[in-house]
Write a protein that binds this DNA or RNA. Structure first.
Lengths: 114, 114
DNA sequence: TTTCAATATTCCTTGACAGGAATATTCGGT
DNA sequence: ACCGAATATTCCTGTCAAGGAATATTGAAA
């Protein structure tokens, strides 16, 4: 077969589907940060920050660069590219107008039972 | 304040971060379906299908149209639009080239300690 | 080599959630 | 009014993940 319909990786989503990890990712959007910075800005205890970063790291959302004592975490591009592609496979869904008249007409269309 | 940096809704993501629900959503990408059809195509027992659809419905990923005995489920556009906007806020991350030479040069850049 | 700073890891407890099985609901047809 | 098809709901159970607290690791500097 040739045309694959994009299948989104579950682990990426579940990594993101947790409030603190989501916040971490949003923080890292503005650039790499150390564990301490992340914990500080989010009001997390350091161990929890490390644990969340491990989850993000294992799922490939984030990568780490070791600088002596510090670990500098930054976002990886692949998961976001993958999400982008996946979401784009729902173009036709997103393009739906929410103009009320349009919607009303569409409703009438659907009333005909095939 | 005026410019909000897109904050993705966690419930949407956790609804999607489950294998069977992800499969359901991929099915619905090709059009609305009844509970029975979904359960059938995915090899799920009907109650589990209903439960997953409830989660998807509560999170706003899906909406239902009642037709006598049947419930016809279809994707809603909003969550995907939201995801699209959110992912787009990571443009600069996604634009990273994975061309090796490029990457090598970028590495050298990063070696300078500010 | 002792000490301090930054980070990771372990253990424990608790709550959420998915699947299985059984049952309830709701509608159309007869 | 009853029956059967389609779907939802409830109860139960096991698993897994998150937070707290304590501890282990690593590296740099004195």
């Amino acid at each position: 077969m040739s045309g694959k319909s994009p299948g989104m990786d579950i682990t990426t989503l579940s990594a993101l589907a947790e409030p603190n990890r989501m916040k971490i990712v949003q923080l890292l959007r503005d650039g790499p940060l150390t564990v301490g910075e992340i914990a500080g800005r989010l009001g997390l205890h350091q161990p929890q920050a490390s644990k969340h970063l491990k989850v993000l790291s294992d799922s490939g959302v984030v990568e780490v660069r070791i600088d002596a004592n510090r670990r500098i975490y930054k976002l990886r591009s692949e998961p976001f590219q993958a999400m982008d592609i996946w979401v784009q496979s729902f173009r036709h869904i997103m393009e739906q107008r929410f103009d009320n008249l349009d919607n009303y007409l569409r409703e009438l269309q659907n009333k005909e039972k095939p």
